[in-house]
């Protein structure tokens, strides 16, 4: 059936199965492949997107659940916090393989939006749901702290 979606502040009318997870609509139908598939069971966080500003696992969120809501993916992450996070990611060369990093960036951006000056414990709490097999955690933490200091500027 045809569903109307609002993704990255752009309106889409697409023919999609409403019971399909948003992840696959984004990746296979809309070619928004920045959102990654990692586990398909909300265990790794690679597929994290924002729905009305809140992080959600797109592998466990159906198309029907997001109709008429604002979806933001890594491709549309343009907020002040999002820009600060990305720029810190590059400065600290956080990435290794990079597959989990869209999800890490989406989660980190939400953390800083909600809590602009997180403690290390706050960062651990917010980021521990996002897995990184390459082990970039130390740099992720440094980058978030750096982004936090540089957002106000």
């Amino acid at each position: 059936m045809q569903v109307k979606l609002n993704i990255n502040q752009k309106k889409y009318a697409v023919d999609a199965d409403p019971s399909m997870p948003v992840l696959w609509l984004l990746r296979d139908q809309l070619q928004l492949t920045g959102t990654k598939f990692g586990c398909g069971a909300a265990l790794c966080g690679a597929c994290t997107i924002h729905i009305d500003g809140k992080p959600a696992r797109s592998c466990q969120t159906t198309v029907a659940q997001v109709v008429n809501q604002e979806i933001t993916t890594i491709e549309g992450l343009e907020s002040k916090e999002g820009r600060a996070v990305r720029s810190a990611w590059v400065k600290f060369d956080v990435v290794q393989c990079g597959w989990c990093q869209s999800g890490q960036i989406m989660t980190a951006t939400h953390l800083l939006t909600k809590n602009p000056h997180p403690s290390e414990k706050d960062i651990d709490d917010a980021m521990s749901a996002n897995l990184c097999r390459c082990g970039t955690y130390q740099r992720i933490k440094s980058a978030i702290l750096h982004a936090s200091h540089n957002m106000g500027a």
Binding site: L32, T33, G34, K36, F37, T73, I74, E75, R86, W89, V90, D93, V94, V95, G98, W99, Q101, S102, I105
Partner: peptide
């Protein structure tokens, strides 16, 4: 690294 920018902006194309 030469791949930091692409891997933080969604432009990096992986096999999948």
């Amino acid at each position: 690294r030469l791949d930091s920018a692409a891997k933080t902006s969604s432009t990096q194309v992986f096999g999948l």
